[in-house]
């Protein structure tokens, strides 16, 4: 079975800095894959490279068997990849509903999905007419995730969704993401190892811009040495 997303030995430069020096990973359809690694390892850059925001200088990326490296960002998205960046990238001057409308890829997308989305995030239904800038941090994060659920995306790239959220909100968010598994495939960047362990089926660890290992979450949970070596610092924050 071929993977839904197949990243092969990707190298990415930002300016003259060589940030990714060989990242490879596979995301199987219907699974949640955790992308792990300490701060500055290159996780965000990997997601941005997949999205075509920082195009790779070398290597290949296949989505559903089709090469997508070199495509402009909007075309990558149109193929069915949704991206939730690590900053709260909701539009401050648009209402919650407008934020969702903007994500429509066809007329009526929101209508079809509204029930599902508002069921997943009841807060958003209540705040529908508020401006994005007026939401709290947690609500913004929910909106950012809700936004990629509007069109029929086949793969979601979610970057550190729980960062900086209160524990109650983290739980709520984790629950929501767990429910997503039935709908789509997810590549999840997560610093909180407990959360990653709870949600993900498989993992990939990057370090210094390189893939170091990949496997099932169970294998990783039984290998404290690896966890400590590559994520130990990350769990407690930068030393």
């Amino acid at each position: 079975m071929s993977a839904l997303l197949d990243v092969q030995d990707v190298h990415t430069f930002i300016g003259q800095f060589h940030i990714l020096e060989g990242v490879s990973l596979r995301v199987e359809e219907g699974q949640i894959t955790a992308l792990l690694g300490r701060n500055g390892a290159g996780k965000t850059t990997t997601l941005r490279t997949i999205m075509g925001m920082t195009p790779p200088a070398r290597g290949a990326i296949f989505f559903d068997g089709r090469p997508i490296h070199g495509l402009p960002t909007y075309e990558v998205a149109q193929l069915g990849i949704g991206y939730v960046p690590d900053y709260r990238a909701i539009f401050r001057h648009l209402t919650v509903e407008e934020n969702l409308h903007l994500a429509e890829r066809r007329k009526g997308d929101l209508k079809r999905k509204a029930d599902f989305i508002y069921h997943l995030f009841p807060d958003l239904a209540r705040l529908r007419h508020l401006k994005g800038g007026q939401l709290s941090g947690g609500q913004q994060q929910m909106l950012a995730i809700a936004r990629v659920l509007v069109p029929d995306n086949r793969l979601l790239l979610i970057d550190e969704p729980t960062e900086g959220l209160a524990p109650v909100l983290v739980e709520q968010l984790v629950e929501a993401i767990r429910q997503l598994r039935e709908q789509t495939t997810v590549l999840l960047v997560e610093q909180n190892f407990a959360v990653a362990r709870h949600l993900a089926d498989t993992f990939v660890i990057v370090d210094d811009g390189r893939t170091v290992c990949q496997g099932t979450m169970e294998e990783l949970a039984n290998d404290p040495a690896t966890v400590h070596r590559y994520l130990g610092v990350a769990v407690g924050g930068e030393a």
Binding site: M51, M53, P72, T73, Y74, A77, Q78, Y83, P85, A89, F91, R92, H93, L94, L102, A103, R105, R147, P151
Partner: peptide, 14 residues
């Protein structure tokens, strides 16, 4: 209105 704030994210929406 969205693009004035964050072009890249607008593009990421397709």
């Amino acid at each position: 209105r969205a693009g004035v704030q964050d072009r890249e994210m607008v593009e990421a929406l397709g």
